[in-house]
Design a protein around this nucleic acid. Sequence first.
DNA 1: TCAATTTAAATTGTATCAAATCTAATCATC
DNA 2: GATGATTAGATTTGATACAATTTAAATTGA
Lengths: 148, 148
Amino acid sequence: MSDSNSSAHHLSLLLYSSSRLLIQQFQIRLNELNLTYPQYLVMSVLWEEDGLLVNKIGQKLHLDSGTLTPLLKKLESMNFVKRNRSESDERTVAIQLTYPGKSLQVKVLELLKPLEENFSEIENPELSTLNHSIKSLLERIESSKNRN
Amino acid sequence: MSDSNSSAHHLSLLLYSSSRLLIQQFQIRLNELNLTYPQYLVMSVLWEEDGLLVNKIGQKLHLDSGTLTPLLKKLESMNFVKRNRSESDERTVAIQLTYPGKSLQVKVLELLKPLEENFSEIENPELSTLNHSIKSLLERIESSKNRN
DNA sequence: TCAATTTAAATTGTATCAAATCTAATCATC
DNA sequence: GATGATTAGATTTGATACAATTTAAATTGA
C-alpha cells in the first residue's frame, strides 16, 4: 500500500490514528470533570467568545446540528451553558455560559497543564511546521469540497 | 487560546478537524460500494495481509474489539470476509478474505483514484514531511502512554 | 404581497469509538 | 496437574458523527 497512488490513503490513516490517540490523552484527564473531548471543545470555543449561535460553533468545529444539539443539551443539563432562542431570529439558538461554565475554564486548564507541558518538549519549529502543514491541508480539503 | 500553553489543544483540534474532513472525502466515494471508512481500512489491512487475527488488525488501526467485533460481523454479513476461530488457540479469531472481498480491492482503487490524483498535486516533499511529522507525533503519544 | 426558496435547529437512523465488564481459553509456576 | 494470572474476543453502555428528513422562521422576487 506504499504505491505511488496511496498518499491520500496513507495520510488519512495517519490523521485518523493520531487524532484518536491524542484525543484519548485529553480524555483521560477530562474524565476527572466528567467532560468528553467534544464537550471540552465546545466549551473552549465559548470561553473564547460567549453567546455564539449553534451555527457558529458548528463552523468553528466543523460539526453540524445533528452532533451539536444533543451535546449542547447535555452541557445544559450539566449546568455549564444555557440555550436561548433569539428574539430577533427565532430560528437561531444562542449559547450562553453559566457561572459554573465560566468557572470550569480554570479547572480544565489546570487539569491539562501536564499534557501541554509534555508538548512543550517538542521543538517549537517542528510543531509550528506541523500545525501550518495541517492547516493548509485542511483548507485544501475544504476548497476541493466546494468544487465537487 | 493561542497562549504559549495551548499547543496540544491547538494541534488536537487541527487533527480532529482535518481527519474528519479527509475521511468525509473518502466516504463520499465509498458510498457507491456501501462501505464505510473504517470498513475500508479493515479491508485495506487484509488486502495487505490476509488471515490476520482480530488482535493484529486492531494493532494496525489502533482499534479494540469493541469496535472491531461488530464491524467484522458486518463485513462478514456483506460476504467480504469470514471469521474463523483458530484451532490452535480457541481464543483467537482469524479473518479471511472471501473471493468477493478480494475482488473488491480493484473496484475501491478505481473509485478512489480521483482522490489520490488530487493529492498528487501537493508537492511531494511537503506531503512526505507532513507524513513524517505526524508519524513521529504518533510514536511520541504512544510512548508517553506507556509512561502514564 | 405572498408563494417559493432558503436557512437554522431538531429529529431520526446507522455506524462508529472506547471504557468497563464478562467469558472462555491459555499460560505460568510451583 | 491444579490454580491464579493473563489474554483474546464479545458484550454493554454512553457519547459522538453524519446523512437525510422535518419543522418553523425568515427572505426573496415576480
